[in-house]
Simulated scan of single mutants.
Amino acid sequence: MKSIMAGLLALAVSVPAAFAGEISDRAAEAEKLLQSGDGAGALEKFSSAQEALWQAMPLGVLNVKQVDTASGFGIYSERANHIYKPGEKIVLYMEPVGYGYGKDGLGNSMIALSVDITVVSAAGETLGTMEKVGRVQIASRSHNRELFFKLDLSLDGLPAGKYRCDFVMHDENSSKTAPFSTDIEIAG
């Protein structure tokens, strides 16, 4: 029994190292191909290194912005401040990374993410939690990595004051989750 446990522990410890070796090996092969003049081959090999990195990394949420508009990846108009009138819609732009890919049964890869929110007062009191306030589901023939998630929030009923919004993004194709936060203020 001890040898089985030791073997499992060794396997658990070696998995991240195996991914790291695989990633760097593929990137080194890409560099060699590029130096030999095979740009297309280098790009394909580098893409395979990026795929291995993507699979090994945790889910993350980058570039969280409060915006006026968002229409595509990197295409948004950042809001001048985080102060809202009572009942005004709050729009967030974010770029998730490290999510998994499922299948849709039609030959497409499927990206599926959802977001929960917890609103916290300036005094640190949890005022409420809502699950799946936003969800994105995209079918693609490719493993898209330039994905933006636009979240429209309505926090009607909050009195004037400052708040922290704590979010948890869920990858519906894996058990990966990613927390992130942003501050808002409701004007009096």
Rank of each mutant, 00 (worst) to 15 (best):
L11D: 06
E29V: 02
G134W: 00
L147Y: 01
I111M: 09
P96T: 05
G37N: 05
S140M: 01
K2V: 09
K150H: 02
R145I: 03
P179K: 14
G188M: 13
D38R: 07
V15H: 02
M110E: 14
L33W: 06
K2N: 12
S154V: 07
L127K: 08
L62M: 11
R145L: 01
K162N: 13
P16N: 11
Q137F: 01
T177R: 06
E95D: 05
I75H: 13
A20W: 03
V119L: 04
S109W: 11
V120S: 07
T118E: 12
S24A: 13
A178N: 03
D183T: 07
S3D: 14
Q66W: 04
V91W: 01
M130L: 14
S154F: 08
P16T: 13
V91F: 04
I186P: 06
K2E: 14
S48N: 06
V91L: 12
I90K: 05
I90G: 09
D68Q: 10
K32V: 09
R141F: 14
S109C: 03
G105A: 06
K176P: 02
F73A: 06
A42C: 04
D25Y: 08
V15L: 13
A27L: 10
A49E: 01
A49C: 02
E95I: 01
A12Y: 11
V133H: 02
D156S: 12
A56I: 02
A122E: 15
G7A: 06
H82R: 10
T69K: 13
I138Q: 05
I83K: 10
D38H: 05
I4T: 11
L153R: 02
L11F: 11
Y84F: 15
G7I: 07
T69F: 12
N144Y: 06
M110S: 15
L43P: 00
N81T: 14
D104R: 02
K85A: 15
D152L: 04
F148I: 00
D25E: 13
E22Y: 04
V15W: 03
A49V: 00
V133Q: 08
D38G: 03
D68R: 07
M5A: 12
V168L: 07
K85P: 00
P16K: 09
K32S: 11
G60V: 00
Q50Y: 02
V120F: 02
A80H: 07
K103S: 15
K32R: 14
P179N: 11
S121F: 09
A56Q: 04
D171H: 10
M110N: 13
L8C: 06
I138W: 01
L43S: 03
V15Q: 04
R141D: 13
G87C: 10
T69D: 12
G21P: 04
I184D: 03
Q55E: 11
L106H: 10
G7T: 12
E22L: 15
D116I: 01
A70K: 03
A10Y: 06
E146P: 00
L9N: 11
Y76G: 06
A30W: 00
E88K: 06
S77P: 00
L9K: 15
G105S: 08
E29R: 03
Y93W: 03
S77M: 06
